[in-house]
């Protein structure tokens, strides 16, 4: 398992080295790509925040909410898991204006990707909450805690630790999905890549370095989530 990050790093440096070595004048497009990468990072962060909030609300509504809220949560989860991220993006971008709701492309991007990943996240949250041993609920009852308090102070913090690895995967899925926003005119990394490809025709170099940039961001996410995981596991062994 420790081999994996090492292997990835090796590939990063190899590809980056290869790419840089083969660039005649890579200054030409590096700044543009970095601009695009910054947009990608912003959308990723925004999307992750939306996803986590949507997932928590949907999971809790589905598990403990009154009937109408529960149906709403189920509808949200099934709808967003059942259709593609790109369809959702286009729907918010092209169809919402027909109903008089005009949003900035950036907001559409963050909302669509966040809600899409949030629907998958809701199942992650639900799984993690269910995995907390029943004795923890019983101890909370024995201490006369109201349900909401027990959920917030006792159950969720424990579920949190179990959620981190699957959320790491979801965040990477979200990062990958951000490339779609280039199709609704946002000049993210994927958009810049295509734009520069059309002007400079350095196809191999541009797409190689763009792939490496995405890889680098996803490594940052992986490392960040691993750190969070060790932090959360501190002092806590899953002992009833």
């Amino acid at each position: 398992m420790q081999l994996r990050p090492l292997a990835i790093c090796a590939i990063v440096f190899f590809t980056a080295g290869l790419a840089i070595a083969s660039f005649a004048n890579f200054r030409e497009f590096i700044p543009g790509l970095l601009q695009g990468a910054w947009i990608t990072v912003q959308i990723t962060i925004g999307g992750c925040i939306v996803a986590v909030i949507a997932a928590l609300l949907a999971a809790i509504a589905k598990m403990y909410g009154p009937a109408p809220l529960r149906w709403l949560a189920v509808a949200y989860i099934e709808l967003f898991r059942g259709t593609s991220a790109l369809v959702q993006l286009f729907w918010l971008f092209f169809v919402l204006p027909h109903f008089g709701i005009v949003l900035e492309p950036m907001s559409v991007a963050i909302a669509a990707l966040g809600l899409n990943v949030g629907a998958y996240g809701a199942e992650v949250v639900r799984g993690a909450i269910t995995a907390v041993p029943r004795g923890q609920w019983e101890a909370s009852v024995a201490l006369n805690m109201p349900r909401k308090l027990a959920l917030r102070r006792i159950i969720l913090p424990q579920a949190f630790a179990a959620m981190i690895p699957p959320w790491g995967n979801l965040f990477i899925e979200l990062l990958k999905a951000t490339a779609l926003v280039s199709l609704i005119t946002i000049s993210d990394l994927a958009f810049k890549a295509q734009q520069m490809n059309q002007t400079t025709f350095r196809t191999v170099e541009i797409f190689s370095i763009v792939l490496v940039m995405y890889l680098a961001i996803s490594i940052v996410i992986t490392v960040g989530m691993r750190t969070l995981e060790t932090f959360a596991a501190r002092g806590m062994a899953r002992g009833r």
Binding site: L3, R4, A7, I8, A10, I11, I172, L175, K176, A177, T178, A179, L180, S182, A190, A193, F207, V210, L211, Y214, L215, S218, I219
Partner: peptide, 15 residues
Amino acid sequence: AAVIEFIRSTPLLIQ
């Protein structure tokens, strides 16, 4: 393993 990881960590659209 590295190739698998690489493919999984980068966007399908760029691929």
